[in-house]
Computed example of a mutant assay.
Amino acid sequence: MPHPENVSPHPFPPDVSFDGGDLDCGNGLLLLIRKHIDPLERGGLLEILSLDSTVEVDLPALCRLTGNELVNQHKGSTTIGGTDHPQWSFLVSKGAFTAPAASEPGPEPEAYAADPEIATHPGKRTKKQRKKPQMAITQEVVTPVIPTELPAPAPAPAIEPLAVVNMGSWPRPSWLLRALHEHLEGRLPDAEFQAAADDAVRLVVAAQERGGADVVSDGEMRRDNYSSFVGGLLDNCQLIPITDLLPYVDDPIEFERELRALDVPAGEIRHPAVFGPLGRSRPLAVHEAEFVQSITNKPIKVDLPGPYLLTRTMWMECISDRAYDNREDLARDIVRVLREELHHLLAAGVALIQLDEPVLTEVVYGLVGERGRTFMCGALGDRLGVEDELALARDLCRR
């Protein structure tokens, strides 16, 4: 939607503009921002109109976390129903912004925040502003199909004692990472991404064979993350950038600090959000195994995130409680879809399946009373005692 009177208050004209109305960052505005900024090229400008005052606080922190640049912001007014209302306009660059060599002068950029506390601590919100709204979603809830029968295992090569086996993921080449992020943003067709991933898997498998590995894997080349990738494949689950969780945490400053400590840009990490009953209408990893089988005669190993890890990662009250009363109910369906995937992997002749449960180290060694590492486990701050959590993890893995 164009700016009122088709006049932009910014020093540079936006490539795209939309009106977020009175939505705040926790009630759908972030989804609209992603929808409009993802298709832009690097350096493209997005204008965001908003009637919500909290956006003035949240947007600078969001821009820092995502690597985008808040070029300018302007506070004006608009008339709704005969009444004047304050309206904010933000100009955001996708990535770093470089001003054109020759451009018409525009209004001077305004300060990000007049409130000195906010200016000193960007992203800090008052207790009144720290609300826990229901996160908006962009997909419709579908009824999952639960199979009545599962395939039996196929014969698989035996694994010799002391066999050399790849542990997990392999480093991905820079060209594959670029393709992955463009694919997640909807700017690269699936067929083109899969072709690039095929090439990367060929390199990984060849390296394992040269190294004398007895069992090979695809190095998780197609996955954006070792655990969250399932969010883009399961029914009624959606991958959202982890930076979109900013409006839901009690301490945005600490959350931002944790994300900045990661070894990858926070804007490139996506988190699974469950908004309906889970189902497995698409394979999680069978397609990965089948491609590896097509290029090697070695036994195949596949890694899957464990049921406790997925339960902890995918349970977020602002979303998951639409479909599940508690995390134990969610865990029941996570176990079911993992069992379905295990059956199909074994039926495809996979020799070894590994379940990853790295978050158990945080359960055992994390400080009592601390919220835990939010970026790894959205609900870890609500954990029970160590023995109770380990008992739950054992039960889920056995099931």
Rank of each mutant, 00 (worst) to 15 (best):
P4Y: 08
H10N: 02
P11N: 11
L23D: 11
L23E: 11
L23A: 13
K35Y: 09
P39M: 04
G44A: 10
I48H: 06
I48A: 06
L62W: 15
R64L: 06
R64I: 00
N72T: 06
T83R: 15
D84G: 01
P86V: 00
F90L: 09
K94Y: 13
A102F: 14
P105G: 11
P107T: 00
E108Q: 15
A111L: 12
P116Q: 03
P116W: 07
A119E: 08
H121V: 09
G123I: 01
R125F: 07
K128Y: 14
Q129R: 14
K131H: 08
K132P: 00
P133E: 12
P133R: 13
Q134W: 13
Q134L: 11
A136D: 11
A136E: 10
I137K: 07
E140S: 15
V141D: 04
V141F: 07
P151A: 09
A152L: 06
P155F: 08
P157I: 05
A158H: 06
A158V: 10
E160L: 13
P161I: 05
P171W: 07
H181Y: 14
E182P: 01
L184C: 01
E185G: 14
A196K: 08
A196M: 07
R202T: 08
R202D: 09
E209V: 14
S217I: 02
G219S: 03
N225V: 01
Y226T: 02
S227H: 15
S227V: 12
G231T: 06
C237V: 06
I242W: 03
T243S: 05
D244L: 01
Y248A: 11
D250R: 03
D251A: 11
P252L: 10
F255E: 02
F255L: 08
L259K: 03
D263A: 09
A266M: 15
E268N: 09
I269P: 01
H271I: 04
V274N: 12
V274D: 08
G276E: 03
P277D: 14
P277A: 15
R282F: 13
L284Y: 09
V292M: 10
K298S: 14
P299L: 03
K301W: 10
D303F: 04
L304F: 06
L304D: 01
W315T: 07
C318G: 03
C318L: 05
S320T: 15
E328N: 05
I334Y: 03
I334C: 02
R336T: 10
L338G: 14
G349K: 05
L352T: 00
I353R: 04
V359Q: 07
L360M: 13
L360P: 07
G372C: 02
G378K: 02
A379V: 00
L380G: 00
G381C: 02
G381T: 01
D382I: 01
A391W: 06
L392I: 09
